[in-house]
Amino acid sequence: MKEYFSDLWLDIQKNKGAVAGLLFVLLFMILAIIAPLISVYAPDQVIEGALRLPPGSRFQEHFFILGTDDIGRDLWSRLLYGARVSLLVGLSVVFISAGIGTTLGLLSGYYGGWLDRIVIRLMDFVMALPSVLFAIVIVAVLGPGLLNAILAVSIVALPNFTRLIRAQVLAEKNKPYVQAAHLYGASSLRILFKEILPNCIAPLIVQASLGFSDGVLNCAALGFLGLGAQAPTPEWGTMLSDARSYIETSPWMVNAPGICILVVVLSFNLFGDGLRDALDPRLKNRG
């Protein structure tokens, strides 16, 4: 296994986009984790009178590296805490959707029959609706809020994982090594989790890194629509939405969270694609 991952790392290194993506992903994670250490103010701290100051401005004894927003909060600090929210959102979405999706995919692919038919129809249903639209419907039912938004976005992301794992299971389950396990009496659970699942891990990791960026983007979209995180949570999508009315007079308020979303989504996608390219020949090699 060790050798496998060191080989994988060599392959990823050849892809400059993937390395850049990985660096930004790491930077984003570190910033999110150490946010309290490097932020100047609390994310919801209002500095009286410091309204919509452009980046680099001074106000009394304060200095705002990225400026302030319409009620006088420091943008730099809000963005840092926003990174925490995004990290939390991305991870939760991936864990929920990958967890449920993988289980559904494993079961429906392995057992087939009516279970498979129901699962696949459900997934078709989810996929048939535009993802953001469907997420809006779910949030509308559950009520706005960050947790509900995460739940909605996870449901929307389910089919990606379910279908991926199901297809992988269908390909693996008739291979002789699985038949051999049947022959020495391994239980279905053992076959599913010890024989088949390890062979689904590679595509699963790729999908997880792509799912992370989808989750961040969709949650930001819900926040922008006022259905996700509620004020004063420093969520990038919500910040974007609050700043919308000032786009002509104070563009930095829009630019900062917008660029953050862009960079995070782009770097996760680049890394995910690089990972896929690096894993692909390996998948083919083992025939």
Binding site: Y177, A180, L183, P198, N199, I201
Partner: peptide, 23 residues
Amino acid sequence: QKNLTHLVQMVFQDPYQSLNPRK
């Protein structure tokens, strides 16, 4: 099933697909 495993075992044709690549 448990007794059967001690009576009959099988060797498969394809040496590439009959072994779990992750073990």
